[in-house]
Write a protein that binds this DNA or RNA. Structure first.
Lengths: 336, 336
DNA sequence: GTGAAAGCGCTAACAT
DNA sequence: ATGTTAGCGCTTTCAC
């Protein structure tokens, strides 16, 4: 910067004024500075700017994994929305573990960005509560979160209820849940507040509403996240002679594994077994047959989350915000 | 930091020494400092560290879009590999356009990170050539790249040749290319060096090898990136009476759209039309039927790219590296 | 309309 | 083993 100043015959302050489009710079001076900038190929050092001015116009988003379509779509949405606000987005991956989330978070919080959005899945309530952050931190996800944080979540249990209700209304009587966890039991700790627990909760609710008696043997807990697990779990259940006429998969990712397993077994979808997923991924429309799914408006989440964090970055320290994104059911071939 | 120093009764330099695990700090002093750090909840300011020490232990990866499974898988691979090297990864999205890439790049280059990996699709050779970067920049992708840059690419044309050769060997005589571009023609500029151009090139080569005469009407250019486009393009081709007994899709993403279109039309895969994709996405195994695909070892790319950029960050300024990742064919149900 | 001085928080280099 | 000094590159403040 001082090189530029020297070449243009001005002070560094004037260079800074020009680069930041501040008023009260003479036209002739401005053009001399710009010429010098060009000539020297000068570019600001954002680190220095951030240290002094306290902003980089960048927000960090921490997701469990890049390689889950749900988070990929969410990240893409955030990038677009932040761009509309003149801000950049960087995304980092936590690996979906407690440690990973803490590590990603501490890296992201250390002053490099203007704000942080954390899609939490592994952190315990107390760990979240222990977080002190210099810059705004917004939480995304299903778990309960200390009241002092802004939090955007989705209507998990309601979405699941819609899906299972749809299957029951359609005539199914034995609806398996791929990725389901028996509430209060569970291998290891019961996790009523996890995404899987909440979505399983909707399965119970739908049964209650319709009077169909739920059978907890239909909760296929082996299928937690990956499609490969789901494929194995469903194949195993079929081999064990488990009888079901529909599957509610707690994520679309899992649903794709379910579809593959049913296809492997020679079962027809939806005639023999109907399938509904959750998340309404872009790719689900291209499954064979196209996958019915609970749609969570990524747009809604993104718009609201960005608006909240933008306000925080601008200094608003009003009441914490808690928002729940609406859900809806999209019926396609897999349950039509 | 000075608060910590005061509380511990030492200088800020000693605090810095403790925090950076430098030797020659008395045990008693160290523990006093750590206690003070704890008590005050102090955390380093990475911006200041970067400004002074010139490192943040973070590399930026710029991909066209978070929401393309290929790049999501690649990003996940990079994150894991960099973690092994004690470095963080942040990912940003360029939107796959010239402008987006330039903007993402200039943001990422401005001193915030120790290095940048750019997966380029939109930049012209001259624009890449004009780039000056203070920190190491490694390019990923198909386009030709000025010789002074490190560049990792994949054997696009060879992979496509393998796929089409497999289809022809299997008895196909009319292999359509979803996403194919006629070399030298093309609507707008011909783009022999684009990913689509290179992969189409493999289609020509396979025909040449086997003596089957290629028919350029089989190049379905309408299907460039998204599955939705591919679905439309294939549906359109079928409606127009185009006859083909196999489809090579230039990406798996496109292949999923092709599978959907064939399913829509009541055609059986692979009996009526065999399908092979390119990229071997994780999800392709779960398609119905499972998708044959050209496998590009993401691991290979990631390992080599990381090793190169790590060397650059450590100050190695030897000859630019140009690497081509190997490809292989994975045959599954869609062409078995 | 422009510039001089000070300092953001940290650490390299050099004392002691 | 610990401390002092200086400065990374920028922008805030205030003076002119």
């Amino acid at each position: 910067m001082s090189d530029v100043a020297r070449l243009a015959g001005v002070s560094t302050m004037t260079v800074s004024n020009v680069l930041n489009d501040r008023p009260r710079v003479g036209d002739e001076t401005r053009s001399r500075v710009l010429t010098a900038v060009d000539e020297l190929g000068y570019e600001v050092n954002l680190t220095a700017r951030r240290l002094r001015a306290g902003r980089v116009d960048t927000v960090a988003l921490i997701v469990p994994s890049f390689d889950h379509a749900y988070f990929a779509e969410l990240a893409a949405g955030f990038a677009t929305e932040f761009a509309r606000h003149g801000r950049h987005l960087v995304v980092t991956q936590s690996g979906a573990s407690r440690e990973g989330e803490l590590s990603a978070l501490s890296q992201a919080r250390l002053g490099l960005y203007d704000g942080v959005i954390l899609s939490a899945v592994g952190l315990a309530y107390e760990e979240v509560d222990a977080l002190r952050s210099a810059q705004p931190l917004l939480l995304l996800g299903e778990q309960p979160v200390p009241p002092r944080f802004d939090h955007v979540c989705i209507a998990n249990s309601e979405g699941a209820r819609l899906a299972v209700r749809h299957l029951l209304d359609r005539g199914a009587r034995r609806v398996a849940v791929a990725g389901g966890v028996a509430v209060g039991r569970g291998d290891g700790a019961p996790e009523p507040d996890s995404m899987a627990g909440l979505r399983t909760q909707g399965w119970y609710s739908a049964h209650e509403e319709t009077g169909v008696v739920p059978d907890e043997r239909l909760l296929l807990g082996g299928a937690r996240y990956a499609a490969a697990d789901a494929r194995r779990a469903v194949a195993g259940a079929l081999a064990d002679g488990l009888v079901f006429d529909a599957v509610f998969a707690i994520t679309d990712e899992i649903a794709h594994g379910v579809l593959a397993a049913l296809h492997d077994a020679g079962l027809r979808v939806p005639q023999d077994v109907a399938v509904v997923g959750f998340d309404d991924l872009r790719m689900s429309e291209f499954a064979t047959p196209a996958l019915s799914s609970v749609n969570v408006s990524r747009d809604w989440i993104v718009r609201h989350a960005v608006s909240v964090i933008e306000r925080r970055i601008s200094g608003d320290d009003g009441e914490p915000v808690r928002l729940t994104a609406p859900v809806g059911l999209v019926v396609r071939g897999s349950s039509a």
